[in-house]
Amino acid sequence: MSIYYIYQDQKRCIGCYACEIHCKTWNSVPLGPRFCRIIPVGPKMIGSVPRQQFIFIPCFHCEKPWCVSACPTNAMQKRTKDGIVFVEQSHCVGCKSCITACPWGVPQWNPETGKVIKCDYCKSRIDQGLKPACVTKCTGKSLRWVSAAEASLLKREKFAREIAKFGVMY
């Protein structure tokens, strides 16, 4: 796993798909492929209210990436300094092994170049001390750029608030 993580606060996600467009415009992604995706789930009734969630799926930048192991040309690489998984375009031969290997369907086919492209957390922005495009401009500030350690803390804090809010005792 890379040292970074994109945490999605479901309460603040309004399913506006802006993250996908922020990403596509920054990375000049052609029609078809999408580095990150919002997958809507629902709506369904939970008690007396309809509930719908929008699940944000970028690349997870795994510690042991299936895509890197599957790549025969060393185009798919993991950055040593921070674990970002990216494609070195000049090495990619378009064999699609990574597409088959990734359990989450993250590597994307670029129909214009016949090569694979994927989310690299906008690494050129990261190297300038900025955040990925999707996080920087998220409409409802649902996406947050955190360390993996912070992500677990955020999740715990959120859980604690939920318990307190509804007065449920465990």
Partner: peptide
């Protein structure tokens, strides 16, 4: 090359919707 919500405006601070980013397209 890039459009973002005005960072000086409370409630925006960089935020922009899909239409706003698609302004480049």
């Amino acid at each position: 090359k890039w459009i973002e919500g005005n960072p000086h405006v409370p409630g925006l601070e960089g935020s922009l919707c899909a239409k706003g980013s698609a302004g480049l397209a």
